[in-house]
Amino acid sequence: MSLGDERETSGGYGGTGQTRTRLPESSGDVYGGARRGGRSSSRSLVTVVGVVVLLIAAIAFANRGGDDSASPSGDENQPNSSTTAASGTRPVDGKSAGIPGGFARDEQGAQSAAANYSVALGSADMFTTARRHEIVDMVYAPAVAAKRQADLDSAYASEKFLANIGLGEDGAAPAGQTFISRVIPVGTKATSFSTGAATVEVWYTSLFGLSGEGSTNPVAESWYTTTYELKWVGNDWKVTDFQQKDGPVPVGRDQRASTADDMTKAVEEYGGFTYAR
């Protein structure tokens, strides 16, 4: 039996049992029988091309967010890449009093400074007089640091304030408990900028409370946005004023709260970061 008149009887088309006869090519090509499967090959080719086209379309759709060009049918509420992406620029090379300093005199530097200053001002160190003075002197501009220092001393030394959060008169946690106050920036936004002044918003979540058996003020999560007024003073960005507001607050997940021991261990073992825009 030649390739040309090979008969296939195993099921035919679609299992109908029909018999298909392959006729010889008029050109006499010895591979004519193999080429006779053109219809099947065409179908396979169409399928492959269709899949490739779909993949290309999917990739283009996924990458559309990186296109800064305006689209009349696009969602104006979607942030572009320049708004949310990290700059990739190293913020600073060193620290002073344990706080990053020496930020660049540009918009990214101002945002990085605001994020790191938020962490310092929201830390448990602010409840210790000596350490609080170091932080304020480092973060605030000299022209306002002294007044801010007095205001903060008055607030943090208040027995009523300390009692409300479960701390002693010296700002220490009760025996067997650990005081936790940490700020974790989520993002920053410069609402105004010049080489001498900047206004930066920092959106962050905070952990605050006492972990340990018998705590009457367990560690809880809160969300805030603080707007910092910054000035370029002495080769760095310094805070001159700030305003705080609640939120934006995401919907909480239905997760089981950790034990006091787990929370204490996590805070003691997991260090913080130097934040960069």
Rank of each mutant, 00 (worst) to 15 (best):
K245M: 11
T240L: 13
N77V: 04
E268S: 13
G11Y: 05
S44L: 11
G38P: 00
P72V: 05
G88F: 01
I180S: 02
N80P: 00
L152W: 07
G33Y: 10
R182C: 03
L121C: 13
M138C: 06
A34M: 13
S194C: 09
A198C: 03
G272Y: 09
T191R: 12
D68Y: 11
G12R: 14
D151I: 02
A86M: 05
G98M: 01
E221Y: 02
S26T: 11
V49S: 14
P100Y: 09
G214C: 08
G38V: 14
Y117S: 01
N63V: 08
A110D: 07
E76K: 11
F208V: 05
D75L: 05
T84S: 02
V183I: 14
Y156R: 11
N77E: 06
A143P: 01
V53A: 15
G15P: 00
V51M: 06
V200E: 10
V52P: 02
A130N: 12
G209T: 07
A157M: 09
V144M: 01
V92N: 05
R36G: 09
W203P: 02
A190F: 07
S71N: 10
S87L: 05
G271E: 09
S10G: 11
I165A: 09
E169Q: 10
F127Q: 07
L121S: 08
A114Y: 10
G4E: 13
Q108L: 04
G14W: 11
R36T: 13
Q108H: 08
N217G: 00
A150Q: 10
R105F: 03
A197N: 14
K245A: 13
M126G: 10
P72S: 04
T129W: 02
Y228Q: 01
G14L: 12
E76F: 07
R253D: 15
P174I: 07
R132H: 10
L54D: 02
A220W: 06
G196A: 09
S27P: 00
V53Q: 02
G37E: 09
D67L: 01
S206W: 03
A104C: 05
V30Y: 12
N235S: 14
S211T: 15
L23S: 12
T89C: 01
S222K: 06
Q255L: 15
E134F: 05
F242L: 15
